[in-house]
Write a protein that binds this DNA or RNA. Structure first.
Lengths: 168, 168
DNA sequence: CTAATCTTTCAAAAACTACTGAATAAACAA
DNA sequence: TTGTTTATTCAGTAGTTTTTGAAAGATTAG
């Protein structure tokens, strides 16, 4: 396989993976393109590599900045903006975990806490099932939360060696 | 908060969470409804609780069976089918992890292995970036893979107590 | 066998999400 | 200031995914 073909396959796969995890396919593709580009790219570069419009490129670039996955760069003497991706895989994983935790896990934990206060007939089978389900999911969510918090603070090598120490 | 209201909120939240993670909103809602129902429900029950059509209910019920999250039940003397969800949260988490690993992680690891064979000019900066990025993502993917494999085999209590022994 | 009941399928419609491209805004140079 | 270049916005369009509902298919009873 040649580099050019490999890049295309990587971009396609990253886009597909993103869309399977609720992330806009094009946004994931822009990210993939920047991940395999040694130099920072302009909006025009991205538009022509991925065959997308200016508006689409701009919107996804800004979203990627919002996720903390890419940054703008200004070259001296040039007016246009260049973009480059953080290539450190552990940083990427942490950044995604951090954003999704904030956007999704934190709100659901808040709701589960409220739901566990719900009142009802203690003899009703449905009520008991509701209570138990909410309680159990809450417990799981809090465990995931604690693990993520550790991961967000950790160094990659420490994190994995710790994991595998217990799984040996 | 009353039980009825709590159920509705739970169903809504579970549906939203699902859709944020690439799972059909209605499928997640059907799952949520079964999770908070003590007794098995018929297709009709689900149609009327969630205000969805027969076709939609049927399709999502079958998908949930495919994910291993719910099961059919037959009541003696009755012709219609009843559905109930496994309420064990750890089983749910494992089942989802297992399916997504099979559908998404395994294929991407296969591709990454192929991509790391790609040939190119060893002096090209783009080629070096490509190689490094692919190699690093591959390493991360394999670590996640190993961790998931351990999780799939593990008992809940063992898994979390092991995690927290290290991450305390 | 036929009738009754329940399940599954799938083409068409509806709903939703993403994309385009032209207009507008902003930044800078002269 | 005006002209030039680049960035942003957003209404309309295109594309995708989900849902409906009626028809076809199963299954069981008599």
């Amino acid at each position: 396989m040649e580099l050019a073909e490999g890049k295309l396959k990587f971009i396609e796969a990253w886009g597909k993976l993103g869309s399977e995890w609720g992330i806009n396919r094009t946004m994931a593709q822009v990210h993939a393109l920047l991940l395999v580009s040694a130099d920072a790219l302009t909006t025009e570069d991205i538009m022509s590599e991925l065959n997308i419009s200016r508006g689409n490129a701009n919107m996804n670039l800004r979203d990627l900045i919002g996720w903390g996955l890419i940054e703008k760069q200004h070259k001296p003497g040039e007016r246009k903006e260049y973009f480059f991706a953080d290539k450190n895989t552990w940083n990427i994983a942490r950044q995604v975990a951090k954003e999704r935790k904030k956007r999704e896990l934190d709100p659901i934990i808040k709701l589960l806490n409220e739901l566990s206060e719900a009142k009802g007939d203690d003899k009703s089978r449905d009520f008991k099932t509701f209570k138990t389900t909410v309680k159990d999911i809450n417990k799981l969510a809090k465990n995931v939360n604690k693990t993520l918090e550790t991961m967000l603070k950790a160094e990659e090598s420490w994190f994995w060696s710790s994991i595998f120490k217990i799984f040996k």
